[in-house]
Structure formats: C-alpha cells, structure tokens
Computed example of a mutant assay.
Amino acid sequence: MSLFPLVLVLVAAIAHASWNLLSKQASQADGIVFLWLVAAASSIIWGPVAIGYLVVTETAPTWTDAAVITGSTLLHLGYFMLLQRGYRDGDLSIVYPIARGTGPMLASAVAVLFLDEHPAPAGVAGIVLVGVGVFMMSGGGAEGDLRGIAFGLATGVFIAAYTVWDAQVVGAFAVAPILLNYGGEVGRMAFMTPLVLGGRRPLIGRVWREHRYRVLGAAVLMPFSYLLVLFAFTMAPVSVVAPMREVSVLVAVVLGGRLLAEGDLRRRLLAAGVILGGMVTIALS
C-alpha cells in the first residue's frame, strides 16, 4: 500500500472509533430512533457536498447507480442496527474489536476466493493473526459478554458483505464514493422513517434532547470516515484496505477502557495488539 491511501485509512480509523464511542454512549436510547436521527442529520449536513459534486462534475446518477447504492444501503442498515443493538448489551472494547476483526478477515477471504486477488504468504499469515486476535478478544470462548460477542460476530458478517460490495460499486461500477456515501445516508433515513413514525414518534424529541451532540458528532464522522475508505478502495486492493483500516480497534479499546471505565483492559489491549499486528502484516505484504 502506498503512503496516500495508508494515511486515508488511518485517519478514517480514528474517526470511525470516535463515532462508535458516541454510539455506545447513546446505546441505552432507542437504537432505531438514534440511527434515524443520525441519518437525517447526515443527509442535511452532507447534502451541499453531494450537490456541489454533481454540479461541478455535471453528472447525474443512473438507474444502475441507484440500484447498487440501494444494495449498499440495505447492507449498511443491517450493520448499523446490529452494532447499536450490540452496544446495548456489550462493552465497546468487546463488540467493536470482534466486529471489526471478523469483518475484514471474511472480506479478505471473499476477495481471494471470488475477486481473483492473491495475497502473499505474509498476507495470509496476517489474516490468521486477525482471527487469533478476535478469538483472544472473546476470552477464548470462556469469558466475556456472550450476547455482546454474538452481536459483534453478526455485525462482522455485514461488515464483510458491505466491504466487498462497496469496493465493487466504486470500482467495477465506477460510482463516485461521495454519491455512494450520501446515497446511503438518505437511503437509510428513508427505510427507517416508517419504523420511526409508525410507533416511535414520541421518542424522537427525547432522544434528540438527551443525545443531540452525539447525533451530530456521529452524523459528521460516520460519512467522513467511510468516504476516506471508499477513496482508498480506488487506490489499493480490498484484501489490503479492509484489514488495515481496523487499526481503529486499538483506538476503540483505549477509549472504552479510559473513557467508559470498561474492565479487563490489559487482555483486551493485548488482543487488539494481535489484531493490529495481523493488519500491519497484511498491509506490508
């Protein structure tokens, strides 16, 4: 991986861990309402950027663009809902590393099996290290919050799915990353609106009053972090970018241990370090 996409991925990792901290802090609120508010705020905040792109480039989305963006939106919707539900039951420093470690490991495997990417032996070793780190993070199957672990693993499946799908959207389908990102925000808001207005309307005001700064912070950082990753996908293979961005697991474990007072910090940092070592091995292969 060259220097520029590496910098993009590392900045994205810090932003990604930061918005996950905000989501964890709001995890006891209604998850659907919180995610809907974030998507609505993102649609407003990032709207001028998307419109400006269309005006400057003089392009218009096609029906094919809309179809593949819709597929991405549904995958991301499943990801966000599982992640937020996991944060209700489990620690940030457990759910996040397991989800982020499982996702790229599966994404790399799919890239090798179906996208004709061929990592070097060091890359394969890195993928194995990521798997070992995830196993350590779960307590070796003997300890830890089992519900949080289960939601982390399920979230990782969706991470793998949208990672591979979105890499093809910005690659093979040549959809601009900013359009994919913004279309996903608007799409999630649209898909969730019937759920929110159908039975959760009274909760909107309360969730907004209690978590408005977290909503606005996540609304800025969610698209920003993934936009950087989408640009990196246009410059480097999926099997390299997907694992390398997971340096955020180390950031998340530190945030969880220091700011949220989550326990067992030493073991979780060790497991995060193994995951990080695997990702660095993959990136340098």
Rank of each mutant, 00 (worst) to 15 (best):
V207T: 14
L92I: 05
P97M: 11
I98N: 06
G86S: 02
G199K: 03
V134Y: 09
L180S: 07
M137E: 13
L115T: 02
T57D: 12
S43A: 15
G126I: 11
T62G: 14
A67I: 06
G86R: 12
Y96M: 11
T73Y: 08
V196F: 04
M136Y: 03
G256C: 07
P194A: 09
Y162F: 14
Y213S: 09
Q84I: 00
V164P: 10
M235A: 15
W19N: 10
G217K: 02
I94Y: 02
T62H: 10
A41I: 10
Y182E: 06
P194Y: 01
P121K: 05
V274T: 09
L250N: 01
P48C: 08
G278F: 04
A107H: 04
F173C: 03
I32Y: 04
A232V: 09
G123W: 01
R268F: 12
L83R: 09
M279N: 15
P237E: 08
P119F: 04
Y226K: 01
G90S: 06
L265V: 14
G184A: 13
L230V: 11
L8Y: 02
A161P: 04
W46E: 02
V229G: 07
S18P: 05
L92T: 10
S2M: 04
L22Y: 06
D65F: 01
L221C: 05
A15I: 01
T57E: 14
V55M: 12
Y79Q: 09
P237K: 05
A109I: 10
A142F: 10
V157N: 13
S18A: 13
Y162V: 11
F231S: 11
L74I: 15
P97R: 00
G140Y: 01
A29S: 12
L269E: 09
V247R: 00
L83Y: 05
M81V: 15
L21N: 08
S27F: 00
A17H: 07
R245Y: 04
S93V: 08
V110S: 10
G90Q: 10
A167N: 15
A15M: 12
V247T: 15
